[in-house]
């Protein structure tokens, strides 16, 4: 479905220096599978997503989608071929309404009921949000949910979500995670979720551990988990009395 061959990315750090953010990544993503990408902050997860989407141009290596070399294609062209990406920090737009964004995402194919379902699915009341402007009056958590709704509206084949759980309150978190997993199974799509959430890691067909710009480990959750649990798992669970079996409860 999607293949990265020896992809490297070097970015300037703003004061003359530069840093290799991705280092010779070889990766094949198979159609219909659910991937979780995890790893420490600064490990290169967002950069990997941006290279796939065409937001960053790799310094070396090639990217193939359904057999076609897309390395030199623009963001728009990649999007129209079926790749889409939910930002870790979605931008705001003064005067552009939630309705407008969803409509653009769906190539103007939504009816009134579709709008309502999309917002409802991410835990936002359609009455309150459909005509809201996507400006600074929305909280970070609301922005994340609108971002996810806009991706769910999109008729894409490869969905990349960048920490969809971040900034979302615990009450809605579970619903959101379920939604993304459910959508994955309903449609025949390929999902890449950059995440630290245990439920995503558990359901993933494959977990990729990305650190220092390299894929350090890949496999089922149980293989990768021991390597990251000290960074991610809650060390307070015993004290707080939370249930160890509740995978959504984490700091």
């Amino acid at each position: 479905m999607l293949e990265l061959r020896s992809v490297s990315l070097t970015l300037g750090n703003g004061n003359g220096g530069s840093k290799e953010v991705l280092s010779q990544i070889d990766l094949t993503l198979e159609e219909g599978k659910f991937y979780a990408v995890t790893g420490p902050n600064g490990g290169g997860k967002t950069s990997l997503a941006k290279v796939i989407m065409g937001i960053y141009q790799p310094t070396a290596g090639r990217i193939y989608y359904k057999g076609e070399d897309i390395t030199d294609l623009s963001i728009t062209e990649r999007s129209r071929r079926g790749i889409t990406y939910a930002f870790q920090q979605p931008p705001r737009f003064k005067g552009v309404r939630v309705r407008d964004l969803l409509s653009i995402a769906a190539n103007n194919s939504l009816n009134e009921k579709d709008y309502h379902c999309l917002l409802h699915d991410v835990g936002l009341c359609p009455e309150d949000y459909l005509n809201r402007e996507i400006d600074s009056s929305l909280s970070g958590g609301e922005m994340k949910r609108i971002e996810i709704a806009s991706l769910l509206a999109r008729p894409a084949e490869v969905f990349i979500f960048d920490e969809p759980e971040a900034g979302v309150d615990l009450w809605t978190l579970r619903q959101l995670v379920m939604m993304i997993i459910e959508r994955h199974h309903q449609r025949h799509i390929t999902t890449v979720t950059i995440t630290h959430n245990e439920r995503f890691l558990s359901v993933a067909d494959e977990v990729l551990l990305l650190a220092e710009g390299q894929i350090k480990e890949r496999g089922k959750r149980d293989k990768v988990w021991p390597l990251i649990k000290d960074d991610i798992a809650c060390q307070w669970r015993q004290r707080c009395g939370g249930e160890a079996s509740d995978p959504d409860c984490y700091r």
């Binding site: 989407m53 963001i75 728009t76 999007s79 931008p91 003064k94 653009i104």
Partner: peptide, 23 residues
């Protein structure tokens, strides 16, 4: 990142600019 966001949703750069200005 406003332009990029709209381009990841399939708009061209020109369409993205028009959307932002109209809004």
């Amino acid at each position: 990142d406003q332009l990029i966001k709209l381009m990841t949703l399939g708009l061209t750069e020109k369409e993205a600019i028009d959307t932002i200005l109209n809004g």
